[in-house]
Structure formats: C-alpha cells, structure tokens
Nucleic acid binder design. Structure first.
Lengths: 340, 340
DNA sequence: TTGTATGCGTTATCAC
DNA sequence: GTGATAACGCATACAA
C-alpha cells in the first residue's frame, strides 16, 4: 500500500509497461491485447487505483459529471428531485454531485465556481434569482446549463424546465375558493423568484374569476429559515386577522403553518383549510393529509437531464428549450377523523 | 465574451503580463505591486474568470474542497446534517459537495471514486457498510476521511463521530416500557449498519432491565425504500400481531409507521405509542408530535469537520479520533388533543 | 499491439 | 515585482 494516490505511473511500473498502455487498457480501447488488458486491470484493482478525473478532464475536456445546484437540501422536495436527477443521469452514464446555496446569492456564486472549477460537463440549477449575474458566469465560461423549477423571463437565452406555476397558483386558490373560503392567506416565497411571481398571478386570477378582490395583507413572503412561516401565521392569529384558507408556496411551509395553527389551538380542517405545493406526500408517507399541487418532480428531473445532455453533446446547436410541465390539484382529505 | 472557459492565459493576454503574475495576483501573494494586483482583479472579474481547481489541485495537491457522502439525501436528517457540515466547513474556508449512495454498495464505490478523482482534500462519509472495502479505497489512496453516524468496530484505524446509539436504543425502549408498553415493535435498519446493531443492543438491555424477554417477531428490518415500513406495519396489524409500542430507527420511518396505523384506523396515542430517532422535529416544524432520540446532528457535523480538517492539515500525526456524542430522549406529547 | 512526445491550466521554483 | 520554466496525471496523435 502506497498511502498516497495511485497513479497510472504506479501501475505502469508494476506492470513493466508504459503509462499510455495502462491508460488505454483501463479505458477499454480496442488496440490492446486482451491478455495485457486483463493483467493491467487486475493490477489496477489490486492497487486500488482510482482515476484522476481532474487530470483526465484537463486533457480530454470532459468528465461525465454534472453538478446539481439546489437552494435547500433540507427540503425533501429537493432531496426527491436530486434522487430523480441522479437516476436519469446514471442511465446515461453520468455522475452527479450536489451543491447547496441556502437561497443565498454569494453561496450560489461559490457553488457555480466550484462546479465550473471541477470541470463538470454541465450544470442543473435552481437559481436563487437575486439577479441573472451568476447565470452569466456559466454563460461566459461556455458551460451548458439548464434552469430547474425557476426561469428568468427577461433572459430568453436561458433554457429551463419548470412546472406550470401560474396554473398551479390558480388551481390552489380555486381549490380553496370552491370550498367557500374567501380570505386565503398566501405564504409565498420572495417575489424575486419566478415561481413565486407566477403562482401569485394564478392566485390573483382565481380571485378575479370568483369576483373577489384580494387583501394585500394576506400575502406574506416566507424566507428559507425554519420558523419564518410559523411566526407569520402566529402573528396573523394573534392579531385576529381574518382568514380561513392557507395556500403555501411549498409543502414544508404548509407543514409549518399547520404546526403554528395547532400551537394556537386552531382546528384543521374545521377552522382552516390548507393547500401546499410540490405534492411531496406522494413520495413520502406522512401521518396527516395535505392537499397539494403536483409539480411532477420526476418528469421535471428527467427532462432537465435529457436537455442538459443534449446541450453537452451538441454544443453548437442553437436550439432553445423551454419546457413547462403541467400541474394538478391533489386533494387529500382527513381519513379517520384526523385533521387535514 | 469568449464562450469558452476563461483561463489565466486569457487574462495575461489582456493585461500584457505573464500567466505567473496573474496567478500570484489573484491568490493575493505579497510580492505583487498593489496597483498591478488591482488591475488584474478588475480584468478577471470583467472576463468572468473562474479558477480551474482541477488544474490547480493537480499541481498544488489541494483543493480546499471536501466531499460529503450520504446514504439518503431525501431524508431530512441528512439534509440538516449537510447544512450543518457546510456551515462549519465554510468557516474554515472549505467548500463541500454532496454525493448520494441510496444505501447501495456500488453507488457508494462510485461516490468515493468521484470524490477522490476530483481531488478533494478529504471525505466525510456515512457508510452503507456492506463491507469495509470501499473505505479501504480511501485508505489506499491516502485520502483523509471521517465516518459520520456509523462506525466499523473491526477497523480500529477508521476515525468516526457517532452518537451514543446503544444508549439511544436503551432510552427509546425504556421510554416506552415506562409507559407500560411491553410489546415494542422495533422498525430497525438492516443489521449490517453499526448504529442499527447498537440501538438493538440498547433496546435489548432496556428489556432485560425490566425483566422482559423480547419476541424476535417484533424486530423488523426496514430498507431505504419508501413504503417498506408501511408494508411491515400493515402486515403486523392485518395479522393481529400484538404490539402497542413502536421504536423506529429514524423519524422518517416513524412517520411512515404512524401513517400506516392511521390508514388502518388505529388511534395514536390511545392505542399505540411511538418514538423515533434523530429528533428532526427540533429542526423543522411538523404538525404532529413525535417523541424522538436526539442525536445532536449539529454537534456531530461540527466535530466531524474539525477532525477531518485536523487530519488534512497534519497527515503524519497518528492520532486516532473516536467520538461518541451523548443521546437523550425528547418527549413530545399530543398538545391539543391531536395524536402523538 | 505498444511506446514516445506533447499539452491541458495551474502553481512552485528560481532567475532577473 | 515580474517572467521563464518545469511539473502535476492523464489522454491524444503519431511513430515504431
């Protein structure tokens, strides 16, 4: 055991062959004698050889790796998304790694730099959207990338795969309006985020259609920090601000809102009806029902990977990819008298 | 805009200086004229330069990056752990990226290879533990690593940071036994995993102490797949196998068990008492109470990073690190008549 | 079928 | 303070 990284040279020395032969044998090139190849592979395995992709990609220009940059690893929505991305990527013989931005602009810039500096072939990113500047970092460096779940409407050059957020917002609000709720608290993400804007538009459209105006006091911006939604809901209840429905930007925020209501002794669904977004209850079993808007993460992940690989493999093609995946209401009612 | 990666050479051309000077200026070496440095930095920023750490680490031998290899990104426990690791690493000016193994041996091997091949300075890993072979891949390549949450008892050379799983298992079982439950279903992880073994030992010790023997039919192995716990619990209920308490290996399994019981119309906590592990309810607000064993992820993350950095910086020091962080019962009762 | 030479982008060393 | 040169580990082109 060397106690340091095993290189092609180490194997070459052991095998009495040139570095080149080792390299070609391990890459299964066809101009190596089968016996030689076998012998080399055995030695490589024995020595615990792990290729240095940093060196390899420096020379070859590709690494069969893609970086996935997400805004919140602790949100199961992204955990599921990452899993789905990984599965699709693996089918195409690509490996992924994940970098977290915590919805922070500086961390996002760092994340992109790390990805680029590790010579990834492409990047899938759910952008924090403080500005498009970080995206231009990828553009300028010629790295193929696809936006996932969010888009920049002012930047037609950026490809994306999103779900139909406007429709989702519309369906969510309509779902509650149809149940007779007229004052719907919208726990939305910050407005810089495209999906927040679009869901808001849908929320407004549903109200207009119902002939209702919306009290601006009912729209709150929730940050990524745990406890933010809880505090907002608590304040509303404390001040006896009237509302009976809640539409949450995502299911984790919805959970927190439900928690806050319970704390204050409010009854769900007797006093409040709630709907979330992402439909994560379809991918993990949680012991309370929550209606939600399905954004089809699996489909989103698959298309995002496929488009990215397409761009990686045909860098000169100018094709533009803008995919909007359909959304739908998934209605979950209280089963056995429990809340929902 | 070049439309390809910006290199030091590009900046050197623009600035009319040598590549070496650019490199030294951007790295804030002190033998560069302040004016030169400033001019260079401006140009670099303008051109959207991103250092190629793949090339840099090839030469320098380090990258200020560590890889975090976890078994299930979709489990919020790991999401929180990753966040905490990231925070500590950032304080020391290290960047992390995450690779998922889905508790699969081949994916784990691939993950380790990716990490090593990207020239990371060290690895934090929650091993899948099919064998210690994958760990030896790191050992043989001289990459510092620290096990997080799991350990190899037969391999005294592998450093780790874990929580006191035996005590955790003991406390969990005792918590339920003290409430009068004598038949406690243990939804454990597979036995190859050290924490599963140790929690099982604790579970047994609590029973012995109470003068009770344990029915082997009450111990089930739950895989990583969503739905596994649900099916096991449903089968138990269907067959009317008697039990009134459940101890789940982690909180996500506990959620699923509660879900399954509710589906069958079982009442919690009237008919069943449940306790989980990881205490993720302390880091996200979920609208139902769940008692759990606190494993102090924050502390675990902090220590793991510190130990890893120590090993990176003092590679010759033979110091061995084996840290066991205390566990405790966090009891959560039903608040407003809801279940718990 | 195998070996030799070259260069990827960066950093370390040394000369000026 | 700055520039020239070599080297990291690997893959490619080409020679043998």
């Amino acid at each position: 055991m060397l106690g340091r990284k095993v290189t092609l040279k180490d194997i070459a020395n052991r095998a009495g062959l040139s570095v080149n032969t080792i390299s070609r044998a391990l890459k299964d090139k066809d101009d190596i004698a089968p016996a030689t190849r076998q012998a080399i592979k055995t030695i490589a395995k024995e020595m615990g050889y792990v290729g240095n992709s940093a060196a390899g990609s420096l020379r070859s220009g590709h690494s069969r790796t893609i970086a996935v940059i997400v805004s919140d690893v602790a949100n199961p929505h992204f955990g599921i998304l990452v899993k789905d991305i990984e599965n699709t990527a693996r089918k195409h013989n690509y490996t992924i790694f994940v970098i977290n931005t915590e919805e922070n602009n500086e961390l996002e810039e760092r994340a992109i730099q790390i990805a680029i500096s590790k010579n990834v072939d492409g990047i899938l990113i759910c952008p924090a959207q403080y500005s498009a500047e970080n995206m231009h970092l990828m553009k300028r460096n010629g790295i193929p990338f696809v936006l996932v779940g969010r888009r920049f409407v002012d930047e037609p050059a950026f490809d994306y795969v999103i779900c139909d957020d406007e429709k989702g917002g519309y369906l969510a609000a309509k779902h509650l309006l149809d149940q007779g709720h007229t004052r719907i608290l919208f726990l939305n993400a910050p407005q810089r985020i495209s999906s927040a804007q679009e869901r808001y538009r849908g929320y407004m459209r549903a109200h207009e259609e119902a002939g209702l105006s919306v009290d601006p006091a009912l729209t709150k911006e929730i940050g990524i920090r745990t406890g933010d939604a809880k505090e907002k809901v608590e304040t509303m209840v404390e001040r006896s601000e009237p509302f009976t429905g809640i539409f949450a930007f995502n299911d984790v925020i919805a959970w927190e809102a439900m928690y806050a209501l319970q704390l204050r002794g409010c009854k769900i669904p007797e006093e409040y009806a709630i709907i979330g977004f992402d439909n994560i209850h379809s991918r993990m079993f949680v012991p309370f029902p929550l209606s939600s808007i399905s954004s089809s993460q699996g489909e989103m992940a698959r298309r995002a990977v496929e488009i990215l690989l397409h761009k990686i493999n045909r860098p000169d093609e100018e094709h533009s990819f803008k995919e909007v995946i359909d959304t739908a209401v998934i209605s979950r009612a209280a089963a056995n008298g429990a809340h929902g």
